[in-house]
Amino acid sequence: MSAAATIKGSRQFDAACAILDRFGRNPTRLIPILQALQEEYRYLPGELLAYVATALGVPPARVYGVATFYAHFTLAPRGKYVIRLCDGTACHVKNSIPILEALRQRLGLTAERKTTPDLLFTVETVSCLGACGLAPVVVINDQVHGQVTPEHAVALVEEIIAREKPAAA
């Protein structure tokens, strides 16, 4: 493990404290706080939520309730590449589901199991990214891909795998 990895938790905790301070440790700012923390940690570990509850002086059950209500918050670690498939109406009528099926099949994922064991990919659906003109749409991290076909989507994944695992490829 690299030196940076050893103290990664320390850096993240510094950032978490700074985030809490930025929002004045105000319980009504719980949602933006969780958003910022998720940006930092890429997901919301339970221990972190417990700390947020402590720091904001609210019951942990309430923090958990908010974190599980909103679709954007994720309490499980996510892959390095988060693939979000738009399943809004426009994408749906233009056959977004076969894309999802192709991606899941390629990566061995299901509706319940959204992240690959090597933490490289997470595949999830979102209800409309507002890019309906480009339907169907797939977003990989922040990169939007429009008018995608199942083959195209799998090719994008292959490209990433080749880049990330040159030895295995």
């Binding site: 319980p27 009504t28 700012r29 719980l30 949602i31 933006p32 969780l34 958003q35 309730g65 908010v66 209500f69 909103y70 679709a71 954007h72 918050f73 979102v126 209800s127």
Partner: peptide
Amino acid sequence: MEGAGAFVCGEETALIASIEGKRGM
């Protein structure tokens, strides 16, 4: 304020709950 992914927050009272840092119910 940025939403956090809940369609129901388009509903007025849920939107208010969400701004107040609660579940958007």
